[in-house]
Amino acid sequence: MPINVVLVDDHPLFRFGLRAALESSSDISVVGEAADLDGAVSTALATAPDVVLMDLELGMPGASGIEATRRLAAEAPAVAVLVLTMSTDDDHLLAAVRAGARGYLVKGTGREEVLHAVRTAAAGGAVFCAGVAPRVTQLLRGAGTAKNPEVLPQLTAREREVLDLAARGQANHRIARQLGLSEKTVRNHVTRILDKMRVTSRAEAVARARDAGLGQNSDG
Rank of each mutant, 00 (worst) to 15 (best):
N4L: 10
V8T: 11
D9F: 02
D10G: 07
D10N: 13
H11D: 12
L13F: 13
L13W: 03
F16N: 12
L18H: 04
A20F: 09
L22W: 10
L22K: 07
E23F: 11
D27H: 02
V30H: 09
E33I: 01
A34E: 05
A34H: 04
D36S: 07
L37G: 05
L37C: 04
L37A: 09
G39C: 00
L45R: 01
A46E: 14
T47R: 12
P49R: 03
L56P: 04
E57K: 14
G59H: 12
M60E: 15
G65A: 07
G65T: 08
R70V: 01
R70Y: 04
L72I: 15
A74H: 14
V79N: 06
L84K: 00
T85H: 02
M86I: 05
L93Q: 06
L93R: 04
G100M: 05
R102D: 06
R102C: 09
G103T: 13
L105K: 01
K107Q: 07
E113V: 11
A117Y: 07
A117N: 10
V118D: 09
V118I: 12
V118R: 03
A123Y: 11
G125Y: 00
C129V: 12
A130L: 00
A130S: 06
V132T: 08
L139I: 02
L140Y: 05
L140C: 04
R141M: 13
G142V: 01
K147F: 05
E150I: 01
P153L: 03
Q154T: 12
T156Y: 03
D164Y: 05
A166H: 11
R168D: 15
G169K: 00
A171T: 14
R174K: 11
L181Q: 13
L181K: 12
R187L: 10
N188K: 09
N188C: 03
T191A: 14
D195Y: 04
R198Q: 15
R198L: 10
T200V: 07
R202A: 11
E204H: 12
V206Q: 03
R210S: 08
D211N: 06
G213Q: 09
G220A: 11
